[in-house]
Structures are given as structure tokens and as C-alpha cells.
Amino acid sequence: MKSSEEMSIGELADRFGLAAHVLRHWEDVGLLAPRRHANGRRRYGPADEARIAMILLAKDAGLGLDLIRLLFAATADRPARRALYREHHDRLAERIASLQASLSVLEHAMGCEAEDITACPDFRAAVASRIAGQRCG
């Protein structure tokens, strides 16, 4: 796309494989601010295209729209931005640890020789650990 070219909402949405209503929603929540023609039609340029690519990268990293908006607002405030990244990192690390534990249980269950998984000593230990964790939480 040449720097002077502009696209309609449909053209830009198609470029990223999105529905036009997604771009409208992102505008509603403050993530996009396309230029408007006198007739009110949205026109998107290279900066909007880059912004959409950034939003999609952030979403791929597991960030929600509210956090993405905060990060865009904190572009000049490095400590605030880093604090937001750290908070998301810590939540993501907790989720990964939980998913790894779940994967471990499933891998054991797939290869377990017990006739009844509920009789397996390893599975029973995982259940007991979960019960103990609920009591503490």
C-alpha cells in the first residue's frame, strides 16, 4: 500500500481476515481512530494498518482489549508500561503452570496401567493435592 493510499473499513478488515464490525468495536473502545470523510465514512491509512497489526500481535500474546488500550496510552511512560507487561507476564506464567500440570495429569492417564484411573496412586495423589489446595485457598 502506498503511503498516500487509503482504504475503506471493508478493505482493511479483509486485509487482516477480520469482520468490519471488529474494527468498529476497536474504534468504540478507543483502540482505533480512523480519519473520516465529510460524509462520515471511515478511511484507513498506513498508520491504522500498523495499529491493527499491533493489536493483533498483542491479542496473540493473550492481552485483552482493555490492557492493550492501557499499553497504547502508556507509550511514553516506560515504568507504567513495564508494570503492565509484568502483571500480564505473571498471570500468563500462572496459567502456563496450571496448563502444564493438567498436561502432566493427562499424559499420565494416557499411559496409566490402572484398570480404573480413580484407583491409580498418582491420580489419587493429584486429587488429594487439589483438595488440600482448595482448603488453603
Rank of each mutant, 00 (worst) to 15 (best):
R35S: 11
L56Q: 07
K59W: 09
M54A: 14
A73R: 08
L92G: 09
A53Y: 08
G30I: 06
H37A: 14
L65V: 04
D77Y: 05
I55N: 02
S102L: 15
A93Q: 00
D66N: 12
D28Q: 10
R86D: 13
R82S: 13
L57H: 15
C112M: 07
M54Q: 15
Y85L: 15
T75F: 12
L65E: 05
A38L: 11
L57A: 15
G30D: 06
H25E: 03
D48E: 07
H21R: 10
R43D: 09
D77V: 02
G111W: 06
V105A: 08
E27A: 05
D60H: 13
P46W: 14
F72H: 04
S98E: 15
D48G: 00
R42C: 03
P79R: 07
S102D: 12
R42H: 06
Y44Q: 03
A61P: 07
G111Q: 04
L23F: 04
A73W: 10
S102P: 10
W26G: 05
M54T: 12
R24V: 05
L84R: 10
D28M: 09
S104L: 02
L65F: 07
L31Y: 03
A38K: 13
P79F: 03
R82L: 14
L92A: 15
A33H: 13
G40R: 00
S98L: 14
G62M: 01
E87H: 09
G45I: 09
D77T: 00
R86M: 12
S98D: 12
A97D: 04
W26K: 03
F16T: 00
M110N: 13
Y44T: 02
R78M: 14
P79G: 02
D77F: 05
G62D: 08
D48T: 05
R42W: 00
A50D: 11
R24T: 05
I68P: 01
H25R: 07
T75M: 13
